[in-house]
Amino acid sequence: MLRVNERDYPFTEGMRLGELADRLKPGADMLVLNGAPASRDSLLQDGDICSLIKTGEIPSALDMQHTLTARHGRGVQRRFKQATVGIMGIGGLGSAVVLSLAKIGIGRLIIADHDVVVLSNIHRQHYFIDQIGMKKTVALKKTLVRVNPFVSITALDIKLTEKNIPKLFGDVDVLVECFDDPAMKAKALRTALQHLPTTGYIGASGVAGYGDANTITCRKIRDRVFLVGDGASDAQDSSGLFAPRVGVAAHHQANQVVRLILDLNEDE
């Protein structure tokens, strides 16, 4: 038996990938065999997993999930799809974290911020010039729909506090702290440690400047609690915030989300 776009299809000896595409998805121009791109004349073997893709076509939810599964592996993608991740703050860190998580098909994302997109955000945050003046929640949701329309996005235009964080993010698997203000970072970790003891948590501290990116690490501080950054580079210092180094930290955070979802609860 073959598995073609997530459906079983009977295997015949000598069958080639191109023939299969002609039969099941005429016009398909990207053929994926067991997770890797393959040519039309690839000889199929019993048990092969194939994805047949027509580029430019807006895929169905099922097609999207088929494609992600072909790329990431079935077990991993199933867990991504079932996961809920909360992102507190969608500035330089948060907008990059959210985009990354939408791309890999995390099932549900809860994003919260009460800021408006301004010109000084564009140099490091994932917003566009034509989004200046929009609420960040609205702007980012529009982008996310273009990236992966099948992720459930809950966008909260709200100022987060120690009181409302446990209520708003009570049912997430992993909570990612992407605030700019150090007092908010401390408040969020404090409230998570007190009120969300079983929730995975990934904070950030020390992402400013253009120092060696290799000094940014992901450090485990408690069971399922991690801190990303160099712990020292403060945005208040003259160096300011730069897209590359903030991006390194954001993707450290996103990667640790993946690891927590897959129950890899170590920092090694």
């Binding site: 703050g89 330089g92 605030f179 970790l189 992402v207 400013a208 580079s233």
Partner: peptide, 25 residues
Amino acid sequence: DRDQYATLKLAQGDQVELIRFVGGG
């Protein structure tokens, strides 16, 4: 809790863990 910082007195043998955040995100 943050509102206890000013009044909470340290005691002999206390194990204090401090996590300090710097700004930027």
